[in-house]
Structures are given as structure tokens and as C-alpha cells.
Design a protein around this nucleic acid. Structure first.
Length: 284
DNA sequence: GATACTCGACAGGCCCCAGC
DNA sequence: GCTGGGGCCTGTCGAGTATC
């Protein structure tokens, strides 16, 4: 798979307005496996994953052919197709032997391709009948039948079970009833589809509401937890502060007690000293 | 939403061939 | 030999689609 984008940022075109008209004017050149150096340069750059624009600029820069980017893309596409064709021819010529396990891959590839083919075919069929309805509209000078109606009518005509044109049917009442039944059935089917679509929409809205409620609940729980975490942290910090204050108070109390004790001790010493002096005076 | 790619349509050039 | 018509190939463009 080729890389997308190439190097648009490196493109001269992306840096300037318009391109410098150097290089050689583009000429009609056949696509061939025996390509020239200009094509060789395109192949090299595209295989490296550069964008068409970058390749176009590069060719001009190298004084080669002055292609517009889209021509580079188209030319690269045609070259690839030619190479693929040549490669397939070579493989067919060689008719190489199949190996163990490859049949399984072949079956898987066939299954995958058939699935895609069926899808494309259905799309193509729808387009075909839409175009038929349009052509019929042109012939009848007014729009009367859808692509689906055209398809069903044609199938009926092919199988031989199509109803007679209404003007030729002898049972006009029966046809009228059939018409009414058909309209009623189509209405009922459309109503059924509408109901189904409405139910799907209701279910979608219900799920969206549910998801929103879940998200809100999650947000609420998350907020509560966050608040709790913050409160716990605050409490922890408060305890820490209180403990520190208590420690300081104890330290201060101890300090005060020690100071008081020393004062008292000093007072006792001074008193004993004074008493001894008085006693000495009295006794001589 | 931007960018790149793919596809179909169209114009122009070239070649072939029949008719003169 | 010249001319006109038809077919094929190429480059370009616009629109749609895929991919990032």
C-alpha cells in the first residue's frame, strides 16, 4: 500500500503561488513498458510514496516534462495497469505449480471477492433500474413508475405472471381491490419501517441518556471521594499541628517547672544562708 | 475537515482507412 | 494525394471517495 500524502510540505507549489514554467511542455506520450527516463523518474518517486504534486514539481525542477499533478496520477495509474497486465501474462506463460496451503487462501480470496462483487452488482442493478425508470419517464412524458416497479413488472413479463394491462383486464373491480390492497400493504410496510426507525431512535436516545446518567453518577462519586480525601488530609494536618503545639507546650511547661524549681532551690539556699548568719549574730 | 486518490467525461492530437 | 470520419490514446478537469 502506498503511503498517502508524500511530502506536500516539501512541494515548491505549496510554498509559492503558481508554478515556475520551467521544464518541457507536456506532450502525448504512449504508455509502454519500454519507458523513458521521465517515466522511470515518475515510477521511482511514486513507488517511494510521494504525492503527485511533489512528483510534478520534482520533474519540473529536474527540467523534465511539465505535467500537472493529475496527469502524474493518471500516468502512474496507466503504467501500473500495464505492468500488471505484463506480469499476469508472464505468470500465465510460466503456469507455476500451486503449493500446500495456497488453495485455502484461494478459497478465502474467492469468498471475499464474491462478497464484494455481489455488493457492487446490487448497486449496479439499482442504478440500471433507476436509469430505466428515467428513460421510461421520458417516453411516457411523465413520471409514473419507480425503478423497483419497473424491475418487478419486467420480471413478471419475463416469467409470464405479469398482470394484463389494466385496460384489457375484464375484472376491473378485482384490479381496483388489488390496487387498494397494494397501497394499504405498502403504507403498512412504510409505517412498520417508520415505527422501527422511531423505536431505534428512542432506544438510541435512551442509551445516550443512560450513558449521560452513568457519567454524571461517576462524576458525583468522584467529587465525593475527592472531598473526602481533602477532608481527611486536612484533619491529618490539623492533628499534626495540634501535636506539634502540644509538644511545644510540654517543652515550655517543663522549662517553666525547671526554672521554678531552680528559683525555689536558690530561695532555700539564700534562706538557709540568712538563717545561719542570724544565728551566728545571736550566739556570737 | 484537509488532503490525496480514483474515476468518468471531455477536448485535442494522431493514426488508419475508405472515398474521391 | 487530400479529406473527412471513426477509433484510440493522452492530458486535464470536476466530482466523488478514501484516508488520516
Amino acid at each position: 500500500m502506498l503511503k498517502r500524502g508524500g511530502s506536500p510540505a516539501d512541494s515548491e507549489r505549496s510554498k509559492k503561488k503558481g508554478r515556475i514554467l520551467t521544464g518541457k511542455a507536456a506532450i502525448s506520450k504512449p504508455i509502454s513498458t519500454d519507458y523513458d527516463t521521465d517515466d522511470a523518474r515518475i515510477i521511482t518517486l511514486k513507488e517511494q510514496g510521494f504525492s503527485d504534486e511533489y512528483v510534478a514539481d520534482k520533474l519540473v525542477e529536474e527540467n523534465r516534462i511539465r505535467y500537472v499533478p493529475k496527469s502524474i496520477g493518471a500516468r502512474w495509474l496507466r503504467l501500473r495497469k500495464l505492468f500488471e497486465q505484463v506480469e499476469n501474462e508472464r505468470l500465465d506463460d510460466e503456469l507455476s505449480d500451486w503449493h500446500i496451503g495456497e488453495d485455502h487462501h484461494l478459497h478465502e480470496s474467492v469468498k471475499h471477492a464474491e462478497k464484494e462483487f455481489e455488493r457492487d452488482l446490487k448497486r449496479l442493478e439499482d442504478r440500471k433500474w433507476a436509469q430505466i425508470a428515467k428513460l421510461l419517464e421520458g417516453r411516457l412524458k411523465r413520471k409514473k413508475y419507480s425503478g423497483k416497479a419497473c424491475r418487478e413488472r419486467f420480471a413478471g413479463l419475463t416469467n409470464g405472471d405479469a398482470l394484463l394491462p389494466i385496460e384489457l383486464d375484464p375484472d376491473q373491480e378485482g384490479r381496483e381491490r388489488m390496487r387498494e390492497d397494494r397501497i394499504a400493504a405498502a403504507k403498512a410496510l412504510r409505517a412498520q419501517h417508520t415505527t422501527k426507525a422511531q423505536l431505534t431512535e428512542i432506544e438510541k436516545q435512551r442509551r445516550a441518556k443512560e450513558r449521560k446518567a452513568e457519567a454524571q453518577e461517576k462524576a458525583r462519586i468522584s467529587k465525593t471521594k475527592e472531598r473526602e480525601r481533602k477532608a481527611a488530609k486536612l484533619a491529618k494536618e490539623r492533628v499534626k499541628v495540634d501535636r506539634a503545639a502540644a509538644r511545644i507546650a510540654i517543652r515550655e511547661a517543663k522549662k517553666a517547672a525547671t526554672s521554678q524549681f531552680r528559683l525555689e532551690e536558690q530561695w532555700q539556699t539564700d534562706r538557709q544562708k540568712a538563717e545561719r548568719q542570724i544565728y551566728a549574730k545571736l550566739t556570737g
